[in-house]
Design a protein around this nucleic acid. Structure first.
Lengths: 418, 418
DNA sequence: CGGATTTTGTTGTGCGAATGAACTTATGCG
DNA sequence: CGCATAAGTTCATTCGCACAACAAAATCCG
């Protein structure tokens, strides 16, 4: 709901965001628009767009490429893109089997990344967070991140250090939207953990860069869905809508409508694993452990082993996958009826067996979704890369910068002038 | 997502909406703010607010009250309200047991209303729509609605005719957000009915007022939830969030987050009745018919009869209500886990037995909702009046006017000058 | 009772951001 | 080489808001 008075500065801020957003959008679709293109697409005049683009370039949020030889008559256009390694964000994750951190810049490149395997079931939050912080430090150092952008280097893009816009941390549990405490992460055995306070305790041992950017916390499935959404925006005309199924041991989900994640009132939405099927929770009967048990396989092998077994003709494995798929499909049919998003994306633990699970899930959807005749359900494997929640976390931070570049430029200004 | 270029006119439009929205908000909370109050609350200057308010008053979207005697020093403030009977909307509904229409003005008063009972199971859309159109005509005539606002009357508010801002029609089925065809309304037996085309066929027999305002179509539960949301905004500080359970024969639902209805991708969200509990759909096992059957009562008596029987000690009736409540509660627990809204409002057929159903529903929520320890679930009876979907339909139209008063004033201008 | 005080609403003046037209720059084409 | 074409820039104009001074209408208080 609109709540702030619009003064003339708001106008500028709005159009600044509009221009940047348009370029970002075009670039993710593989184009590199010129100022004139942006003007035509947004409805602003070339004069206005030029002024705004100049400001964005000065602030390191856009970069000009060399004019490309075109076949057309007329002065060649200056293509615009997101600059590499000028502005980046730290995306991180703590999950049951691993923790990791990744620095992604505005252009979408992974600047640095580190992942640490482990078993964090029933772990001590303080220990794990210390371990994570050390990892994050290493990744930031590798990225050449600097918090204060000693910008007396003066040259164009690429020369300055990579500046960190912020950090986000994905957790497999319910967290308040933003910075609230972690309420519960059943599979970590964490409950009412004030992650930010614990990190603040570590503060003396942290680099200024990490200390200056306390991570915003969010649910792992929500952030993975964000990465998936970005990946699917790439080629497409419209922003994607889908139900993303995630989770390693438990089953999480996120509902994406038109590229926006539906977080509910506090950001706790998407607890699909808690759905009751019969008298048991979905993640008890269709989660990774349940599937492996039903297939008679060692838990250590993971989903990959289950997939290969089932594909190799192991009937018990195939049945386990199929049964889980049917249960999952039923829960998803309820979900689709409730939220009106008829495309399901299988991520997390289900990604590895997506080819096997898709059929029973789809069958359940087609059978039980009221709107199926008018909006045929579909089931897909996730297309975002490995550890999508980490990417999504970084993207969440960068999206905020893109949404309100004026705030970023304002932060920037004193450092440039100083 | 922001998509339009902001020129200076947008600024004015935005602030116009901000001012009107603030007054509307304050009035629903029982206050009548002055220009100075609005300025203080919005951050705009008194000068700017004055100019905007003058424009809104001239357009009939706001009205000045007589200055009230205050105890304070200083010039007495001019209180602002929504004018009565200048701008109104037609809200209507076609449901299984009745059809009706209601004219609601900006101040929230019901200007005229008419309801026609009937049995529209397996009905002919053409016939029913003709009957509905006749009813709507009568209501519009009673409201003294005129489409062209022959505003040479020239005097202040109240003198001119009531102008109709638009119409909305609630239907118990899935309809595209806006004006799409009705895909299916199982309990009416309607399927792929192009309601607007059928109404256009009736056009020659319609008054210009109704013909000029083809109703936007929406789901009955969504619109009822909107009315409920408005009713609950009244006293409160925050905008309400709840899951609204509706439905007469079937079971519909709507998710309201911060006063906004979550419609999903196409506006088809909330089909709670389709939820599978065991191997049957919720509305088959916990719907009105199922409850009455389980209680051994005549279907004709309706929910009121069931309620009185159960309260009078009829154990079979009480058990029927309780069992249905448990099933409904289980489905709602899944819903709450999925959408993170922990307050449930019982409307529609459940409103009449809300006192009996609430306990088993709440028990199921407390037992199965993961976030229950941090956000205690609650269950309520609906507080919006009779036939809330009709009110909600009118409010939907009026909300659009309030959200973009500039568009309304622009529409208005030629008529005033002509 | 009359001036000081207080708060509301109104009347100019200046500023900032976008527009639109004219202008410059850089290319291809004949 | 001149012309057409398109991209980007410069400058006067426009329009809405802020700011400040002012007018209006009440209470307060000696």
């Amino acid at each position: 709901m609109r709540t702030t008075a619009a003064r003339q500065a708001s106008l500028r801020e709005h159009n600044l965001g509009l221009v940047l957003g348009h370029v970002v959008d075009a670039v993710t679709r593989g184009r590199t628009p010129s100022r004139a293109d942006v003007a035509a697409a947004t409805g602003l005049t070339r004069a206005t767009v030029s002024a705004l683009v100049d400001r964005l370039v000065a602030g390191g949020l856009l970069a000009e490429l060399d004019p490309v030889q075109t076949q057309r008559a007329g002065r060649p256009a200056v293509p615009l893109t997101m600059p590499a390694r000028t502005v980046a964000a730290l995306g991180a994750e703590i999950n049951v089997d691993y923790l990791g951190a990744r620095v992604v810049d505005l252009s979408g490149d992974v600047v640095a990344e580190r992942v640490d395997a482990g078993d964090f079931r029933a772990s001590d939050p303080r220990e794990v967070l210390a371990r994570w912080a050390a990892l994050a430090e290493a990744v930031l150092a590798e990225a050449g991140a600097s918090d204060t952008g000693t910008s007396d280097v003066g040259t164009t893009s690429g020369a300055g250090p990579t500046r960190i816009a912020g950090a986000a941390l994905a957790l497999p549990g319910i967290v308040d939207r933003g910075t609230g405490p972690l309420r519960t992460a059943p599979n970590l055995g964490w409950r009412d953990v004030d992650v930010l306070a614990l990190l603040a305790d570590l503060s003396p041992t942290l680099s200024p860069t990490l200390a200056a950017h306390p991570p915003r916390l969010a649910n792992e499935a929500d952030l993975a869905a964000r990465a998936e959404s970005a990946a699917r925006t790439a080629g497409a005309d419209e922003r994607p809508s889908f139900v993303y199924v995630s989770g390693e041991i438990g089953i999480g989900a996120a509902v994406v409508v038109d590229g926006r994640i539906f977080g509910g009132l506090r950001g706790w939405a998407g607890e699909l694993g808690q759905t009751l099927v019969g008298d048991r929770r979905l993640e008890e009967v269709a989660g990774q452990d349940a599937m492996l048990r039903a297939a008679g396989l060692e838990p250590s092998g993971g989903m990959a082993a289950l997939g290969t077994a089932a594909r190799a003709g192991d009937e018990r494995a195939a049945a386990a996958v199929c049964d889980a798929g049917t249960l999952l499909g039923t829960a998803l049919a309820n979900t689709v009826n409730l939220v009106d998003v008829s495309h399901v994306v299988l991520g997390g633990a289900f990604a590895a067996v997506a080819d096997l699970v898709a059929a029973p899930v789809l069958a359940a959807l087609e059978r039980h979704v009221l709107a199926a005749p008018w909006a045929p359900p579909s089931v897909d494997a996730a297309v975002a890369g490995e550890l999508p929640a980490m990417t999504g976390a970084a993207l969440a931070v960068l999206a905020d910068v893109v949404a309100d570049p004026a705030a970023w430029l304002a932060d920037d200004a004193p450092r440039v002038s100083g």
